[in-house]
């Protein structure tokens, strides 16, 4: 699949996104007429209160969910035209993820968790690459530890290594430091932005933390399902 999705300057283009869900007798509108363009290498923060729809928007942009209306193109591929398997291929080849809950596989060691993404991609040197990335995030000594033997900060660093191992074109991060104390949270943010800059990855960051958002090139404000440019 490599090479199938051409990478234009605008790497994410969302137009006219609307999303509604049935909630009992009434219909809830989660996204309202959203338009968003993200350029290659750009970092964009989506901020907003809890329940404003920012995570919903992230899941649409990453191809995890489909909007009721509207078009999304990621890395040149129109998500509406892709089936579930093709979207999985797009995620494997071009996208990376970091979540608030870390989402490591509990029965795999730190090394295996990082290696998983490379193995899915079919990289031959997955193990060496995983070890290298664990070293980059400062966890070489903890490679054989399982998630429940690691602290929250360490788990998130493993998740960052997993996200970057395949050098994705776009990285989606959902509240990456929300579950950590201030110290650990700060370290994770540093790591995330430094790797992002080194690799020139496009970053879409969902957060409710204004100081974290401020480190991005652009900040988008989400309120009541609608998106607007926020003044720094």
């Amino acid at each position: 699949m490599t090479g199938q999705y051409q990478t234009p300057n605008i790497i994410i283009n969302a137009e006219g996104l609307n999303h509604r869900v049935d909630s009992g007798s009434e219909q809830l509108t989660l996204l309202k007429d959203i338009n968003l363009q993200v350029s290659q290498g750009e970092s964009v923060a989506i901020v907003g209160a809890s329940g404003s729809g920012k995570t919903t928007l992230l899941s649409m942009l990453a191809g995890l969910d489909s909007p009721s209306e509207g078009e999304i193109a990621v890395c040149g591929a129109n998500l509406k035209q892709l089936d579930e398997e093709q979207r999985a291929t797009l995620r494997r080849e071009k996208l990376g993820f970091i979540f608030q809950q870390f989402l490591l596989i509990p029965s795999l060691s730190a090394l295996d968790n990082v290696m998983l993404a490379a193995q899915l991609r079919g990289l031959d040197d997955a193990k060496a690459l995983a070890a290298e990335w664990l070293e980059r995030v400062g966890l070489r000594e903890r490679a054989s530890h399982f998630p429940n033997q690691l602290s929250g900060g360490e788990q998130q660093r493993v998740a960052i290594a997993r996200a970057f191992i395949c050098q994705p074109e776009v990285l989606f991060a959902d509240e990456p430091s929300a579950n950590l104390d201030a110290d650990n949270g700060h370290r994770i943010e540093e790591l995330l932005f430094s790797l992002n800059q080194q690799l020139g990855t496009t970053l879409v960051l969902v957060t409710h933390d204004p100081s974290l958002a401020a480190r991005c090139d652009r900040v988008q404000q989400m309120a009541g399902g609608a998106l607007s440019e926020a003044r720094p």
């Binding site: 995890l64 999985a88 899915l120």
Partner: peptide
């Protein structure tokens, strides 16, 4: 369920 969801987010296909 969570493990499979992570697999899929990381791009694993159904047959994998």
């Amino acid at each position: 369920y969570d493990v499979v969801a992570i697999f899929k987010v990381l791009g694993a296909q159904r047959r994998q």
